[in-house]
């Protein structure tokens, strides 16, 4: 049990009478790669938003590393060690790529406004530290040479990588990736797969939402399947793959 980093306990999320999530239970153990799949509108991103504090759940609890994280603000959740990327990339368009990543490390700095105005050694040291950490992450993601450019100048796949770098800068325990492969070509998807596996080796726990079944089956150790806000199946990829409910809800409806 001590391994458990996330527990979603009977979460229900309603928007004006409509249930986006119904009684969801799931857990995540340290070092795992877990996928959440489901057709469009199944409630995947809503689930992410509940976990990361963007929405306050109507019912149920979220436990983060054993501590109650229900109803906490997004910035508090980030500080507790959860970092996420967004389905529709949300980089800071008028900050440089370096600043974008430094922004991720923001929650690991603590200089207050007086120390900033007085320019104390603590503040200087801290600022240099996050800058260097950001440069390191950019090198790791192969984005170092673009560090002074704006993120909008990057191609799509690299923007997604930059978002991952920014999330990593928060020094997370768990990475939540919202459709990281969406809109990527085969080469980019393959690069992404390598990055995710590398991150697993470095000890990160990863929860990812994905539409691309092949990608999920390939990479995840366990999978949760959502449909119309309900959890309809869970288990190892091959188990889920052969579950008739999943086939009906998800694969059956898909064109391919």
């Amino acid at each position: 049990m001590e391994q458990q980093v996330l527990k979603v306990d009977h979460i229900t999320q309603q928007f004006g009478g409509l249930s986006a999530l119904k009684d969801i239970n799931m857990e995540l153990n340290r070092g795992e790669i877990v996928g959440v799949i489901g057709p469009n509108g199944a409630g995947k991103t809503t689930l992410f938003n509940v976990i990361t504090g963007v929405y306050k759940p109507t019912k149920g609890m979220v436990f983060i590393d054993g501590k109650n994280g229900t109803g906490k603000k997004p910035f508090e959740i980030t500080k507790m060690g959860f970092a996420r990327t967004f389905q529709n990339i949300r980089l800071f368009p008028r900050m440089t790529i370096l600043e974008n990543v430094m922004m991720g490390a923001y929650c690991r700095t603590s200089a207050n406004v007086f120390q900033i105005i007085a320019d104390t050694p603590k503040k200087k040291k801290e600022h240099i530290r996050i800058r260097e950490r950001a440069l390191e992450l950019l090198k790791m993601m192969g984005l170092y040479e673009y560090r002074y450019e704006l993120p909008t100048s990057l191609p799509y796949g690299e923007q997604r990588r930059l978002e991952i770098a920014r999330a990593l800068a928060t020094e997370p325990m768990v990475l939540l990736l919202d459709e990281p492969a969406a809109g990527m070509n085969d080469q980019e998807t393959e690069d992404l797969r390598k990055i995710i596996l590398m991150l697993k080796q470095e000890g990160y726990t990863i929860l990812l939402i994905e539409h691309d079944m092949k990608f999920v089956m390939n990479i995840c150790e366990r999978i949760y399947v959502l449909d119309h806000g309900e959890l309809i199946a869970q288990g190892k990829p091959e188990e889920v793959n052969s579950d008739p409910k999943v086939i009906e809800a998800y694969l059956g409806k898909d064109e391919d």
Partner: peptide
């Protein structure tokens, strides 16, 4: 400074800033 970073991120996208750890 970190405060400057926070301000610029709020300017660019305040809900994303909040998710990235900015109060």
């Amino acid at each position: 400074s970190r405060y400057g970073l926070a301000l610029k991120s709020i300017r660019d996208d305040d809900s994303a800033a909040e998710v990235m750890g900015v109060n």
